[in-house]
Write a protein that binds this DNA or RNA. Structure first.
Lengths: 208, 208
DNA sequence: CACCCAATCTTTACAGTGTACAGATTTTGC
DNA sequence: GCAAAATCTGTACACTGTAAAGATTGGGTG
């Protein structure tokens, strides 16, 4: 898992990637608060001022990592078997969202820290928007609309509801609000017990 | 609104309060990222090392401010007229939660940044817990239980649902996710339009 | 009242941080 | 082959949090 950057190839080529990967492993190893531009430079065996030439500033580098984070998040939300009911798919996607947040807390927290990112970066906004697409599809199905339907007010309100709920849940979990129950490995409890219970209340199975 | 600390009374008494108030105004003026222990000391006309004697560390001071924040949050959640229906009260409390977050973004963000606080502080945990009490009462009423009933599994799951939803909404709003629509003063739109729409979907009025 | 001790605050210092600036080095384009 | 552009280093600066030691004040006790 330790990203070994291909040695003696700097000075011509892959410093940019090396810095991104170094940042990502820092986030995984030490969390968001463990990140430092200088530490990333150290791990890439490069002077503290080198990153500026590729990313402008610390926020530039972090923005790049956040973009990758949103893309990875989108992958976690993609639902595999699309056979089930819409609410079942929604819950599966919610679990994917929370699973991502718990598996990569540093990356996840970074993605919503606009004080650390370039707030007007177009690619970041696009990546963030793209991650919502799979959920939007499910919501449309939930409301009995075609996949390519326009997002009317109640639909986007429903999207907002789903998004807020999973996001709040993930955020509270990472803020240590449930930490009495979750020393570390018990994040399984969150995914297998608390989250489904919560979702069953907000999105009850359609009665038949 | 600008807190004028009573001059020439340091060196005997109110430095502790002065630092807390200074921190609070920094949060209001410059946001959470504008806070600096040294800046707080400057505003209290005191050396950079002085706060350590009262709060131990930066986290100690911020923890104190966060405790006040939770108490203020609890006040915003308290519902005035308890005459209405349970779901109406719940929505009113949700609006109070979001109103607090939008009115005091710095304080609100601080309260959930456990990397900046003393994570094991008992008073902080107590204040956080106390803020949930009004919501718990409403949830119990919603489920037709007496006010002093035990919090069974579905009840606490419902609480978690409500908490996650408003928290996620507030957090997304402050993360600039809806910032296309909200330059600044249009946070009214969030409170008056988006939030009620979302809540009506998750907690529909009981049909009659 | 005098005294000592504890609390309070200042001074100084140190290890880090992000990044601006100027210079060295390497790669690329023509 | 050589100038120009891209890339990286070295140095420097203004910050940060806080540790350590000394000055100053206040309160309680004899």
């Amino acid at each position: 898992m330790a990203v070994e950057t291909t040695r003696e190839a700097y000075h011509h080529g892959d410093l940019r990637d090396a810095l991104i990967k170094a940042t990502d492993t820092i986030l995984a190893e030490r969390g968001l608060e463990g990140f430092t531009l200088r530490e990333a430079a150290r791990r890439a065996h490069v002077s503290p001022a080198a990153p500026a030439h590729h990313f402008g500033s610390s926020a530039g580098l972090l923005t790049e990592v956040a973009i990758l984070g949103f893309e990875e998040l989108a992958r976690h939300i993609e639902v595999e078997g699309s056979a089930k009911s819409a609410t079942a798919r929604l819950k599966q996607q919610a679990a994917g969202y929370v699973r991502f947040a718990l598996a990569y807390p540093g990356r996840f927290q970074l993605m919503f820290r606009y004080d650390l990112l370039l707030p007007d970066d177009a690619r970041l906004a696009a990546a963030s928007e793209l991650a919502k697409v799979p959920i939007a599809r499910t919501i449309l199905a939930l409301r009995g609309l075609p996949e390519d339907a326009e997002l009317d007010a109640p639909t986007s309100a429903t999207m907002l509801a789903a998004w807020s709920t999973v996001h709040g849940f993930a955020h509270l979990a990472l803020s240590g609000k449930f930490s009495k129950l979750t020393p570390e490995a018990k994040s399984q409890h969150l995914l297998d017990e608390l989250l489904p219970q919560m979702l069953d209340i907000l999105w009850p199975e359609p009665k038949r």
